[in-house]
């Protein structure tokens, strides 16, 4: 019977494929980091080891403010998007189908269905008229635009998690006279957490990646890291961009390590 003993964590080949995927995932990243130490002026031709581009990036105000702006927008937009998406997922899953359900579903997924350039031009025209009417040209427009296109990315994982989530625990809680809010906080939310985290991470990453919509919505002095790099792409892309990305990567890894060490202690 020993060979009939089934372990879900060891489906044949799955571990190998997964590890290979992780390796391939990090291969371009490794190349990117290596080239950040390139002494030459292009990211494609290795001319020796140097910290030159870290120095340039450190002194480049434009790059630094663009990076901070990108992060600020991504944090704000992913919070807003995840909040809206979680509520919408709770509202549209696990209930009798009703008129308008398809409408809500299509509405939420709409940003996925249109190429970015179209949304970008539409938003340019719409927001520009608001900008002219109100005189406000701040980052609010970029945050609103990013929140909107991040919603479907946050919504789908949360919905996938909710669908078929075991109802019995919630019913049990309700039977024990827990208020709906308590049931939600103590039972539903913890069960939903992995979906919410997955959704929030997707939203964050998607916001951080956006070029086209940002390019059209931004006002004066609102370059994000991607639009800054897009401007470089046409002329010369120096390893400076690699250096910034490497620093961001290192920061991410440091933060996550700290996070894990701390939560481990608390356990």
């Amino acid at each position: 019977m020993a060979d009939r003993n089934f372990s879900a964590s060891h489906l044949p080949g799955f571990t190998q494929i997964a590890l290979l995927v992780f390796a391939l995932l990090y291969l371009p990243i490794a190349v990117l980091v290596v080239y950040s130490f390139n002494a030459g002026t292009t990211s494609g031709l290795w001319e020796g080891f140097s910290f030159r581009w870290y120095g340039t990036a450190w002194q480049n105000d434009a790059v630094q403010s663009a990076t901070l702006r990108s992060l600020g927008i991504a944090v704000s937009a992913s919070i807003i998007a995840t909040f809206c998406a979680t509520l919408a997922a709770l509202g549209t899953t696990r209930r009798k189908s009703f008129r308008g359900q398809t409408f809500i579903y299509v509405m939420i997924n709409q940003p996925l269905m249109v190429p970015e350039i179209v949304t970008a031009v539409a938003l340019l025209i719409f927001f520009a008229s608001i900008k002219v009417a109100t005189g406000y040209q701040g980052l609010g427009y970029l945050i609103a635009a990013h929140s909107a296109f991040c919603i479907p990315f946050a919504y789908l994982p949360i919905r996938a998690r909710l669908e078929g989530m075991d109802l019995s625990l919630e019913t049990a809680a309700a039977d024990l006279y827990a208020t709906p809010w308590m049931t939600f906080r103590r039972v539903t939310l913890p069960l939903l957490a992995p979906g919410i985290i997955a959704g929030a991470m997707l939203a964050f990453v998607i916001s951080l990646d956006d070029v086209v919509i940002t390019e059209f919505v931004k006002s004066g002095g609102q370059d994000t890291l991607p639009t800054y790099m897009m401007g470089q792409l046409r002329r010369v892309m120096t390893p400076e961009v690699n250096a910034i990305s490497s620093v961001l990567l290192a920061l991410t890894v440091l933060l996550l390590t700290a996070f894990f060490l701390l939560t481990r202690k608390n356990d």
């Binding site: 900008k131 390019e215 059209f216 004066g220």
Partner: peptide
């Protein structure tokens, strides 16, 4: 001076024409 980038003449024109851009 704050520099904001563009990468095509047509995109820049569309943006300026829409208004509310804040550029000088």
């Amino acid at each position: 001076v704050t520099v904001t980038d563009y990468d095509s003449n047509d995109a820049a024109l569309a943006k300026i024409e829409a208004g509310g851009h804040g550029f000088d």
